[in-house]
Every structure is written in C-alpha cells, then in structure tokens.
C-alpha cells in the first residue's frame, strides 16, 4: 500500500507521533520539557537534524554499502548535530545553556537513527523529506505540549520566547513537583493515557 507524500507527512503528527505513539526518544522528552521554550528549541533542533539526515541518507542510499550503513548514518547524523550545536551557540546562547548536554545527545536519539534506518534508506528523497519533516514537527509539538503542561502547573508561567508569561495570579502556589524529574514521568504517563483513550478504536 503506497502512501501519498502528504500522508507520509501527516503520519508523524498523529499515527506515529514519536514520544506518545512510538514511545521513542524519551530521554530528551523527560529531561528538557521544564518550559515550553526548551521543548520547542529541542524539537526544532531535532527536526533540523532529522530532515537533513533523512535527505542525505536517502540520496546516498544506493552508494552506502549495507554492512557499514549504521556507521555511515552515525557520521551523517553526528555532523548535523554538531552543526546545530555550533549555530545555537552562535545565535541562541541562553537556550544552548539551558539545553546543554541534550543537544549533543541528539546523535544517539533513537528517533533520528530509526528514521534513517527504517525509512530513508528504503525510500526516495521527496518521501524521506516529508517523513523527516512530519516526525520532526510531531516531536516538536509533543515536547511543546508536555512543556506547556509542566510549566503551567509547575511554575504558573508559559515561556514561548525568552520572557515568561504569568498565567495565574500572584496567589498561585507553584506545584513544583511538576518541574522535577518525577513530575516528568507522571505527566508523560498521563499524556500517553489520554492519547490511548483518544485513539481507541
């Protein structure tokens, strides 16, 4: 069953949305989603890496010998991750300070390697581009959503870009559990539960 290019894109937004449906790439999902801004930043960085590596892997898929394909994918992915790291340092330094170690860790993010191995190495360039973009946007949206829930209850604010927006009045007592690590697990669990309820057929 051949899917159309639009379908390749939209599957990343719901049917195969990475953290909630595939339950992949949970390390950055749990660690960086303290604020919406961090979530979006991490999502965009991952999207860039996904799209570029998908493009390159797909265009080189006939040249890369299958025995060393994983090594080749890792070289390609690591290159783009370093590009993101340098560019982020040069133009968005505060965000780089907040995301810290999780930017270099995109190299070992199983979503990126998974798409290269499972999709881009078997499909054409346009399809791979649509797939990478879809999965990337889905990942960004999930991180932003999780970040929004955690930030809203954990500190009573929403940070879209740099300055936080106060949502609740001054009498709001922050539910700090939500911005700590255990809160991330609980929140992710609840989100998974909601996704499963909604997707139940």
């Amino acid at each position: 069953m051949a899917k159309s290019i639009a379908q390749e894109f939209t599957k990343g937004l719901w049917d195969e949305i990475p953290p909630f449906r595939l339950v992949l790439g949970l390390c950055p999902v749990l660690a960086v989603t303290k604020t919406v801004e961090n979530g979006i930043g991490m999502g965009l960085a991952t999207t860039f890496v996904l799209v570029c590596s998908n493009l390159l892997v797909s265009s080189l898929r006939k040249v890369i010998p299958s025995k060393v394909r994983i090594a080749c994918f890792i070289i390609i992915i690591a290159t783009f991750v370093t590009v993101v790291e340098l560019v982020m340092q040069a133009y968005a330094y505060p965000l780089f300070l907040k995301l810290g170690i999780f930017i270099p860790l995109i190299v070992v993010n199983c979503i990126v390697l998974g798409r290269s191995e499972a999709f881009a190495s078997k499909n054409g360039i346009v399809r791979s581009l649509a797939d990478g973009l879809g999965i990337g946007v889905g990942f960004t949206l999930s991180l932003a959503a999780l970040g929004a829930v955690r930030e809203l209850f954990g500190s009573g604010t929403l940070t879209i870009w740099e300055s936080p927006i106060q949502v609740f009045g001054p009498s709001f007592e922050p539910f700090t559990f939500m911005v700590e690590a255990p809160g991330a697990f609980v929140c992710l669990g609840l989100m998974l539960c909601i996704m499963n309820l909604l997707g139940k057929k």
Binding site: V63, I64, P65, K67, V68, A71, C72, I75, I76
Partner: peptide
C-alpha cells in the same frame, strides 16, 4: 568500497 565510502563521508 566500504572503506572508500566511509572515508569520503568522514
């Protein structure tokens, strides 16, 4: 071929 491809990529 393996060596060549990896070398060029790197």
């Amino acid at each position: 071929k393996m060596v060549l491809v990896l070398t060029i990529l790197a």
